[in-house]
């Protein structure tokens, strides 16, 4: 019965990554936690993964606060090109 809960490190860390986005299913979480109980390396990966997620969230926040615009010069060039195309 327990066999179906046994996964390898590649699968465990894939689920671990998925869980960082809260998109791992219940059965995946059971498999992950079962694996982590017996695998020190993936246990460490899981802890460090949470730290990586907080880093990524910080980066995400930075990006959201930043707006990218085209320069006036680029816009003028584009306007001319569009005018030429319309002719």
């Amino acid at each position: 019965m327990f066999k179906k809960f046994i996964i390898n490190c590649d699968e465990a860390t894939t689920i671990c990554d998925k869980s960082q986005y809260k998109e791992a299913s219940f059965s995946e979480l059971v498999k992950l936690n079962w694996h982590i109980l017996t695998c020190k390396i993936c246990n460490l990966y899981s802890k460090q993964n949470r730290k990586m997620t907080s880093l990524f969230k910080m980066k995400s926040l930075d990006c959201k606060n930043q707006t990218n615009c085209m320069s006036k010069e680029d816009k003028e060039i584009l306007k001319k090109q569009i005018e030429e195309l319309k002719l």
Binding site: N68, D74, K75
Partner: peptide, 28 residues
Amino acid sequence: WIDNYADYLFNYAITRVNDSDLAKDLVQ
């Protein structure tokens, strides 16, 4: 189009390709 949408499209493109020149080309 340029006045109304160039910045919006550029912002949309750059978040997906992370390259300013490429984003400009895609908008063009």
